[in-house]
Design a protein around this nucleic acid. Structure first.
Lengths: 204, 204
DNA sequence: TCTGACTAGTCAATTTATTGAGTACGAGTG
DNA sequence: CACTCGTACTCAATAAATTGACTAGTCAGA
């Protein structure tokens, strides 16, 4: 039972429908959890059955109706209990890192391309998170907001996400540069050897 | 099929038994993937059935025998194919971040304690990764190693892990400080009110 | 000599996550 | 007037991860 608490924590901010939650899990909540819409709808249904959240129907004219959910007292109690329990360590999972681990056996071109793509994705995400932070703190500057603002929870997790994205971008760029340089070095070496003529042979 | 490639990538380094792999998934490989021993044994069996890895029995006197696995040509081909396919975006999952997101509704004491614990765990991990990096690059300095070393894959992913742990530690410490300060501010305010017309005055 | 930790695994049950497809309606674009 | 996009969900099948228990021998320390 893990997604359960991420959903509860997300709903602390206010009321959300399943659809809106799914969006939040793509942006803000993505800083610490990831889930697909199907999972969220299923979890919301479960949480409601157990009385940890409650929903209300909102009738809309121009769009499909929706159900907005909020955390009940039982839900807050559950969150408190969860907060007291020991956290299991965070973990990363990243296909690209898997590929880089095997970099010595994989074509550099592919890797460099993917690294630069990732770097720009991370860059875009930092911009998004930056604007999100500005919106959350309003007129106050960061220190002031953290001292006296209300609802600093989402702000703090966004700060974590921002740092993560920045680091990720930097690492991608540096790694791409390393691979590029090594590629260039090998090409140069090869051309030197072929120029030396005869049965030129590049090392593997 | 995801763990599959993480295992293949880990076995690129050399031969490992299931047991040794499990250890690697706790340290180096943990920088980009996480899995429990049971999962690894199951995945190794599957990979062997499919001919992507091959194992050989090693008889030991003083300990239980073990099976060491290595990647076959088919396995390397599979890795290449995987590297060419688009990576799904990385994601984080962290209970502690979930708790912090709901910080406004949760007792600060608990959170501060967990944040400081995490910070020291992260600190320990940075030390571990640092020594791992030194071991990998041997006599060379980092830039030199990345230019001319062999097997830079694991090195590069460790660099990512190191950056992650450092950031994590810094964020934990800062977040703990923020929560502590807010707690202090609230306590002060309360004591001013009870003392009635006291000396100090806490800001709004 | 008992205890607990380390090596090296296996088995089964359950919970979670992913993949893929489908419904329904309105608004805006070409 | 067809087409796609966005809102708001649902259902089912499969794959992957977690939990928990279990075997069995070695070695070091109390």
């Amino acid at each position: 039972m893990a997604l359960r608490h991420a959903v509860l924590a997300a709903l602390v901010d206010g009321e959300y429908s399943g659809y809106q939650l799914a969006k939040a899990f793509d942006i803000g909540v993505a800083n610490f959890w990831h889930a697909l819409p199907q999972q969220l709808y299923a979890e919301l249904a479960k949480l409601e059955r157990e009385g940890l959240i409650a929903g209300r129907q909102v009738v809309q004219e121009t769009r499909p109706n929706k159900r907005l959910f909020h955390v009940t007292d039982a839900g807050f109690a559950e969150l408190e209990a969860f907060a007291t329990a020991t956290s299991k360590p965070s973990f990363i999972r990243d296909d690209l890192l898997v590929k880089i681990h095997a970099a010595d056996r994989i074509d550099s071109g592919t890797l460099i391309e993917q690294l630069t793509d990732r770097a720009s994705a991370a860059e875009a995400k930092t911009a998004l998170l930056d604007s999100l932070l500005v919106k959350m703190r309003g007129a106050l500057d960061e220190d002031e907001f953290l001292r006296s603002g209300t609802r600093i929870g989402p702000y703090l997790t966004c700060l974590r996400g921002l740092a993560f994205e920045r680091e990720h971008r930097d690492w991608c760029l540096r790694t791409a540069a390393v691979l590029r340089e090594r590629g260039a070095a090998r090409t140069e070496q090869r051309s030197v050897r072929t120029e030396e003529g005869g049965t030129a042979r590049a090392e593997s």
